[in-house]
Nucleic acid binder design. Structure first.
Lengths: 238, 238
DNA sequence: GACTTGTTCAAACAAACGTTTGAATTTACA
DNA sequence: TGTAAATTCAAACGTTTGTTTGAACAAGTC
């Protein structure tokens, strides 16, 4: 039990210097009512800093409403998060199911693999073009990893039913694939989707700005063939 | 400006019920010194709950050290995070570079695409088998999305140089691919890697437990061909 | 007008936060 | 063993946290 290590560490900053790095300059739509302004502000802030790092005072200041408004309208901070996520997520699921139902089928009743993948991905990517949609997408990507309350599983539950329907459709498009390989491919699909939505800026950084993942069509033109061919690779004997 | 909406929301829980959902039962190695026990505890807690949701008191309680020890040994909570991430991340980069240098080459000096992909992914997945490695991997996956201080970019910087070397190697393995498509493929590769490391439990849930992403060889056997074929798809004319 | 209901507001609440302090204790080295 | 340095510890620091309160204000109905 010898003790031969560093001495007391020197403090890097004597006073402040640890302030929040610049809240978003954008403001919320002044025409919305209190509820709408709160949701909009919370969406932006949660997406950028995460649930725990954002305070009620941050939200209400950005929304230009009174501090007590959040508890009045939503009950609690956690309930506000559920509201923020739920509203758009349910719309996303509906859009996905609509595209899935409209899928072209060949004479055997099978859909094209690329079409199924695109039906899954397009609503996610297109949402990022709506006002505030990019914030929502990044928030969702965070929640796939983050853990607030016990609610990670509860949020993902919104997608369970439609995910199973897409797995069925993928299996239809790949009739010779073992079911387990479909799951692995879907895992890869979810990973790419989340990473794209998170928009961490890595690909822009690495490519020197050549690649722009906010360009929906350009992104789909790469991801869809990548995923489809990836799926096909899983059917080969190893 | 009519006002016809819900009345004051009813509180769901009268008293407590919003407590932290069960801290990890596992304890830290009692044989380590104070520094080591703090790092181990912080790694577990940051990975599970995120940087902001974990308090100094959570860390020091789990590590069984005094509250002031973190500031004494590391200076601040943020400096502790940097230490926690840095130690293992640098080892990971070294291992990747080692595998990259050891790559087999054909008569033209080109590596096999599958080999490059595996050299990139294997160190990440194998780390999850080391003690505490799974915690570290999940923490890294979080930090790819999370934003603490201004440090997201700073953490990712550790990987910049080796990432560029891998992109070069991928371009060597795919000599006819435009460089921009290599970047898109690498983006997909990063997404799958992060999602796998985050271990969100989605694939186990969806597959009814059939797929186990903690089985390194089984995971590599799926992800490597998926990614390799995905890369090849990016070379085709659209 | 009075009355009821929905909403906003400033102020305060207790609890938890990261950090600091100064004395007590342990270790390293003479 | 004596002394200085390294480390631990309990207590407190000043902020900030999410939430609550009760009065004030605004709107619809009689």
């Amino acid at each position: 039990m010898q003790r031969t290590r560093a001495k007391r560490i020197e403090r890097p900053t004597p006073a402040a210097a640890a302030k929040r790095p610049s809240l978003p300059r954008a403001v919320v739509d002044p025409n919305g009512d209190t509820r709408a302004r709160i949701i909009q502000a919370a969406e932006m802030l949660f997406a950028e800093y995460g649930f725990d790092a954002v305070s009620m005072r941050d939200i209400t200041a950005l929304a230009k409403v009174n501090l007590a408004s959040v508890n009045y309208h939503f009950g609690s901070k956690l309930a506000l998060l559920a509201e923020v996520v739920g509203v758009r997520a349910n719309g996303l699921v509906e859009e996905r199911m609509r595209l899935l139902a409209a899928l072209r089928r060949d004479r055997n009743g099978r859909p094209r693999l690329e079409d199924v993948v695109e039906a899954f991905l397009r609503p996610s990517l297109e949402m990022s073009r709506q006002p505030g949609g990019a914030d929502h997408m990044r928030l969702r990507a965070r929640l796939a990893v983050e853990r607030v309350g016990m609610s990670r599983a509860r949020f993902e539950q919104i997608f369970d039913a439609s995910n199973e329907k897409f797995i069925d459709a993928l299996a239809e498009a790949l009739p010779d694939h073992p079911r387990v390989e479909i799951y692995w491919g879907f895992h890869c699909l979810l990973g790419i989707q989340n990473y794209t939505m998170a928009n961490s800026g890595r690909i822009q950084h690495l490519s020197g700005g050549t690649c722009d993942p906010t360009d929906v069509e350009a992104t789909l033109a790469r991801i869809v063939p990548f995923v489809a061919q990836g799926f096909r690779a899983l059917g080969r004997r190893r």
